[in-house]
Amino acid sequence: MQSSKPIIEVKNLEKKYDSADVLKDIDGVVNQGQVICVIGPSGAGKSTFLRCLNLLEKPTSGTVLFEGMDLGSLKINELTTLRERMGMVFQSFNLFPNMTVIENLKLAPVRVKHMSDEEATKKAKELLDRVGLSEKADVYPSSLSGGQQQRVAIARALAMDPEVMLFDEPTSALDPEMVGEVLAVMKELADEGMTMVVVTHEMGFAREVADEVWFMADGYILEKNEPNELFNNPQNDRAKDFIGKIINA
């Protein structure tokens, strides 16, 4: 399934806030079907990097190419077309509390893709079935557990048939017993060939699923390697230190 057709190419990406340099000289390529895990200490810039990929943040300089298209040149109405092709899953789920589960799934297909209500409902039901939550279609998100909410959030992103899925620490806000159910859904997705960029500290997941792990600190990507190489034999001192800590934790 994996090919070497690049979907995302990042060159010299920089992001500055008023004073702080959050991302510095970031380069990287994500090929079709690849799963990239991004790890690194808090404040390293992992979230910011991910958000620069779908332009929730505007890079200060550098280029991000999505299937060869320069995102820096997009106009506002083109942004939404880009974003519908890139799903995103957040640490805090961000389900819409004013809508039922199925309404959460149908909103974007109906409003953005102009899908008929019938079609959107059918699709939403399939996706809920896929994440094992068919019977929760008509409840409000607040009545779901964290793990269930995150599975709904994944289904909601999938409802737009994205070509890439971005995950920002999707299991960090979950109680330990719920982490597994979410990772299982993600793994299944990876097995089906979805291109994924995942910020996570779940070493087991990274080892099993990732094609590459990128280690970030202080706004730089300091090391990129296959998961086993990176975890067992890190070259960079910061990476050594960090991996030592999470393995012992």
């Binding site: 929730l56 957040f90 819409f96 509390p97 737009m160």
Partner: peptide
């Protein structure tokens, strides 16, 4: 803020985000 971001990440434009996600809440 996450609500707006989630909506935008799904491809909804500003008006729809306001109308369906932010305003009702």
């Amino acid at each position: 803020k996450g609500q707006t971001e989630a909506s935008q990440s799904l491809g909804l434009n500003r008006t729809d985000t306001m109308r369906y996600v932010v305003m009702p809440q």
